[in-house]
């Protein structure tokens, strides 16, 4: 398969738009989203539920189900455009070049098949292997994701594993054809707090070892801060801010991101400093004109209510979609000062 050229991103999404046709009209779930993920890089995608995080992940792997559809933009995997491929070609990419991890390991595995059957089936779908070879590979994979005594455990059914172990099996399934990109959709949300850190550490280690790029979708800023290299903050189907994780966490630009960062509890901070963003995200049926965040924004001004902000590169590799950072706006503001 085509491995990415040096410097070429593994995943490049340009102006992606996803729409859902409903009885009450067309909903824009994703409206003009662009980002890149480099080899071995972890991009965290955060936002409230309904912000479009998971839909973006599903769009990349080609699993948007009707009545949803990709309405525009491009998805490029290692230089090859994939959003317009026929279904069969897209299927070959899924599992082979893009692996996916879902939220709930309890429901992700078919309860009627053993772990061995599900692993061997996936491996043999993508690789030309005998059943015996595939089984050996499956045992190696289980060992790699940290399942003890894999040669014995492999013939167990999913319900015979604990939640954390099951998520390890799911990771093994996502990794089994050596993908270039892994999309992890809330991989720790359904797990015990004690297990969450283990799974995140495992995921990070595996991707570093294999040089796999990761798109980590979560609403947990703590997970992002620990794991991601860069982070994209989504709001109402658009990226509000995207940049290096350290900068976004410590010096967020977008008022929404700032609110979000204020909402992460850390041990060295007073509880009193926890702030909450007033109001809630608009429904897709009622996105306000201008900036979607304007009704909740503490720093809103007139332009925000009519003019939709486009991403601006405010610092190197750190973009924000907010009029506060528009150079024109800044000079105007400076002029207005006496």
């Amino acid at each position: 398969m085509s491995s990415p050229l040096p410097g070429q991103p593994v995943l490049s999404v340009r102006d992606l738009r996803v729409e859902f046709a409903t009885r009450r009209g067309v909903l824009k779930a994703i409206d003009g989203v662009s980002f890149d993920i480099a080899r071995g890089e972890v991009l965290g995608v955060v936002g409230e539920s309904g912000a479009g995080k998971s839909v973006t992940g599903s769009a990349v792997i080609g699993l948007i189900e009707p009545p949803g559809r990709i309405a525009g933009g491009e998805i490029v995997l290692s230089g090859e455009r994939i959003d317009n491929l026929p279904a069969e070609a897209l299927r070959r990419i899924r599992g082979k070049r893009i692996g996916m991890i879902f939220q709930d390991p309890l429901t992700s595995l078919n309860p009627l098949y053993t772990v061995a059957e599900q692993l061997v089936e996936t491996i043999r779908t993508h690789e030309d292997m005998t059943a015996r070879q595939a089984r050996t590979r499956a045992i190696d994979l289980l060992a790699e994701v940290g399942i003890p005594a894999p040669e014995r455990r492999i013939d167990s059914y999913p319900h015979e594993f604990s939640g954390g172990m099951r998520q390890r099996v799911v990771i093994a399934l996502a990794l089994c054809a050596g993908p270039e990109l892994i999309i992890a959709d809330e991989p720790t949300t359904a797990l015990d707090v004690s297990v969450q850190a283990q799974i995140i550490t495992l995921l990070k280690k595996l991707c570093r070892d294999h040089g796999t790029a990761v798109m980590l979708v979560t609403h947990d800023m703590g997970v992002i801060a620990e794991t991601a290299d860069r982070v994209a903050v989504m709001y109402a189907g658009r990226i509000a801010e995207i940049g290096p994780v350290r900068e976004v966490v410590s010096r967020p630009l977008h008022p929404y991101a700032a609110g979000l960062m204020g909402a992460i509890p850390t041990l060295d901070q007073d509880i009193g400093r926890l702030v909450q963003i007033p109001g809630s995200m608009p429904r897709l049926t009622a996105i306000p004109p201008g900036c979607a965040f304007n009704p909740r924004c503490p720093r809103v001004f007139d332009r925000c209510r009519v003019d939709r902000p486009e991403p601006i590169e405010h610092r190197p590799a750190h973009k924000v979609a907010c009029h506060l950072y528009d150079p024109a706006e800044r000079s105007a503001a400076l002029e207005a000062q006496p």
């Binding site: 299927r91 990419i93 899924r94 599992g95 692996g99 595995l109 089936e121 779908t125 993508h126 054809a177």
Partner: peptide, 9 residues
Amino acid sequence: KFARARGLK
């Protein structure tokens, strides 16, 4: 859904 994501036929 997961089976689809694994690229099964």
